[in-house]
Design a protein around this nucleic acid. Structure first.
Lengths: 203, 203
DNA sequence: CCAATTTTTGACCGTTTGGTAAACGATTGC
DNA sequence: GCAATCGTTTACCAAACGGTCAAAAATTGG
């Protein structure tokens, strides 16, 4: 009897856990943890509720599993931003990667956003142990670039913050963006975001 | 028997409706509509559940009341951005007002954000009839400024979008901002946001 | 003061919630 | 082929949910 992954998972276990997590991502990202129900997830997954509880310990377990997998994916682009000959390009690459991720993984973006909006009660430790060190490291890197005069003078922390803000906005507020500018203008958005951070960072 | 405000509300009615709406704003902004419960609202308001349903028709009624009042407040700063001798100042004033609003009314910001993240099912019409016309009008205004060469060339729609993104971020993602840069650095944030949009808009 | 009205409350109802028990199929290993 | 395991379902909880109702308390107007 699974629920915890103590032993090697069979093919069918792997498949169904995947189906459930995908369905749960749909539901949790649109309704939040409290607003989501196991029945919704079960219906979206095409499985019965008890069958879902056969693969996961409970609602919390599914949610926790999603969040744990999310942070790694979410921070991967930032990890890749390392020291280089062309700091401006490194930062702009990061911006573009993050923007692309918002369009390709809007559910993940909304899951993360919803969790932080609620005060991140189930992510507090992950934020401290996983995000904070990486964030500080990258801030120091950017600060060095600033000190060397290779990019304009900016607050590294707030720069990263505003990159997150702008890129995530296109995923999290898709409903609003769609009504106001139409969902199809990704090229315009890319050009605008590029111009914004380029003008800010060019010495 | 109230629930609808057909006649003149007494002082006690006005007070209790206010208390309830304030408590509901707390609960709805942190848990979303589906995640919020009447018992939570009742406890936060210091009233009994039936007493709350004496003043409002139901959970939906409270939520709808909050949303209706919100959009006006939320768009007020944008309404005030009108044609002027100094377009850059007008936009920067708007940015600063919006930023201030995020710090002074984080609950309203989160209520709005949460609703839009969920696809804005209860705001679709308000978005179309209330927000869209204003948005288009202000886009046209900014476009005129651009065409006259009084500010740099930007996409008005995406400019407004990114102003919303950055300013709301400080309210909606307060939990994250608090962990990473500390909640106290409002001056740094103000300076950064100012520099960002100023560099983008200066011809 | 008292009667009419307004406000508050405790008890309750039908439904939905997360979760369980056990029996029922399906697979697998030998 | 067959027992042992794995996977699924039916039937069911107890608690929490949004909401109702009638009676009690508090307020108001004369």
């Amino acid at each position: 009897m699974p629920a915890d992954t103590a032993k090697k998972p069979s093919r069918i276990q792997l498949k169904n856990r995947g189906i459930i997590l995908d369905a749960a991502l749909d539901v949790f990202s649109t309704h939040g943890f409290r607003g989501a129900t196991l029945d919704q997830i079960a219906e979206a997954a095409g499985l019965s509720k008890p069958n879902i509880l056969y693969y996961f310990g409970g609602k919390d377990d599914i949610h926790r599993t999603l969040l744990n997998a999310l942070l790694d994916v979410w921070l991967a682009p930032l990890v890749e931003m390392t020291d280089t000959d062309d700091p401006l390009d490194a930062i702009m690459d990061y911006v573009h990667r993050k923007l692309e991720m918002s369009w390709e993984m809007p559910r993940e973006s909304r899951l993360f956003a919803g969790e932080v909006i609620r005060g991140a009660p189930r992510m507090a430790t992950d934020l401290e142990t996983g995000l904070k060190p990486l964030f500080d490291e990258k801030c120091a890197l950017i600060q060095r670039w600033v000190d060397d005069g290779r990019i304009a003078q900016v607050s590294p922390a707030h720069l990263i913050m505003s990159i997150w803000a702008v890129t995530q906005h296109y995923a999290d507020f898709e409903a609003q963006v769609g009504v106001l500018v139409g969902s199809g203008s990704q090229d315009d958005a890319r050009a605008h975001v590029d111009a914004m951070f380029r003008s800010l960072l060019t010495p």
